[in-house]
């Protein structure tokens, strides 16, 4: 979002919640000047927290240098350092927090801890122009329907067990699909699902505005191992069931909150089938549908930098002694004084 307002200051944001180490630089006027990232790709299986943390420590200096080069800034130009304080994997978070503390104390700059989930919502709002959306935030670690009400982002619906991205990733690994740089497992499932034709019967579990995905994952895996179903059909059925469930709870929350915008954010936001389903319910409830641009969908430093700007310019600071990571920091516990 190019803006004519003066930049005033710059915030560097460090994201290290899970498998990605990202560094973003945001100007106070909302310009994103850099968004560098390095992803850890496990040799096999899912994220090993210790290995992810080791990766982050190894690449931190390169990713920082890349961000400064991209933004054409020097460390002395910065006004504040922001970091993802949680929720997430402890070892990964602690690596990012260590880098942030070191930078802040070396450069003698204030530090501000940012909630990762709020970061996903705020970058979505910044990039799409959404003002007060009902947000569906879907990623490898989170699945929630949230909207602002009385001083906080309130959680209207969420998963009772595993996250949507996790459900798709684990299924993909069970199916023998391989993660490659630039092609997340979820994207592989999406591609195969396009060739699916037959709907395999799978569980559909909506409880109030919450949902449960673990039974769906187990059943989809079993449907594949049975050997009589095509992989494409199971991918298709898994997506249709899972996305219908999140769309249904989003619609319930939309009818309940009567918000005029629906924002889709987080890593799974890149999925076109999910985008299509949500745009249908937004239209039916006279709400505008907005989706975060792909480069800001998965974990990134820019969202931490921008949320750091919002927090810092509204008086929030995180002294080093309070900068311990918070692995289960719920979005409805976060102060958001920039929203009125």
């Amino acid at each position: 979002m190019a803006s004519k307002t003066p930049r005033e200051g710059y915030c560097l944001g460090i994201e290290s919640t899970a498998d990605d180490f990202g560094v973003g630089i945001a100007a106070f006027n909302g310009e994103i000047l850099a968004n560098a990232v390095s992803g850890y790709v496990p040799e096999q299986g899912g994220i090993h927290p210790r290995e992810a943390a080791r990766h982050h420590a190894e690449v931190a200096d390169q990713v920082l240098a890349e961000a400064f080069a991209k933004a054409q800034l020097k460390p002395k130009d910065l006004s504040v350092i922001a970091f993802s304080q949680g929720p997430g994997l402890g070892p990964s978070l602690r690596t990012g927090a260590t880098v942030a503390r070191a930078l802040a104390s070396y450069l003698n700059l204030p530090l501000v801890g940012v909630n990762h989930s709020v970061g996903h919502i705020e970058i979505g709002k910044l990039q799409t122009g959404a003002k007060d959306p009902l947000t569906l935030y879907v990623s490898g670690g989170n699945t929630m329907v949230t909207a602002f009400a009385a001083e906080r982002y309130r959680v209207f619906g969420e998963t009772l067990d595993i996250a949507l991205g996790n459900c798709l990733d684990v299924f993909a690994r069970e199916a023998g699909l391989k993660q490659r740089k630039g092609l997340p497992l979820g994207a592989a499932v999406e591609k195969l699902a396009l060739e699916g034709k037959t709907l395999v019967a799978l569980p559909y579990v909506v409880k109030g505005m919450d949902l449960s995905l673990s039974g769906l994952l187990t059943s989809a895996t079993a449907a594949l191992q049975k050997g009589t179903n095509r992989l494409e059909d199971v991918c298709f059925s898994l997506q249709e069931n899972a996305f219908s469930m999140v769309t249904e709870v989003t619609e319930r929350a939309l009818a309940h909150t009567e918000k005029r915008e629906v924002l889709l954010t987080g890593g799974v936001a890149a999925n076109r089938r999910l985008q299509a389903m949500l745009s249908v319910i937004a239209r039916e409830h006279d709400a505008e549908f907005k989706v975060v641009p792909k480069q800001y969908a998965s974990d990134n430093g820019a969202m931490i930098a921008w949320t750091g700007v919002l927090a810092f310019t509204h008086g929030l600071r995180t002294p080093v002694e309070e900068s311990v990571v918070r692995v289960r920091w719920r979005v409805d516990k976060v102060e958001v004084p920039w929203i009125t």
Binding site: G90, T159, R326, V327, R328, R330, K333
Partner: peptide, 15 residues
Amino acid sequence: EIERRGRYIADRQQP
């Protein structure tokens, strides 16, 4: 138990 399983419990501060 359900709260511990999901993302519900209040933040536990970790060193």
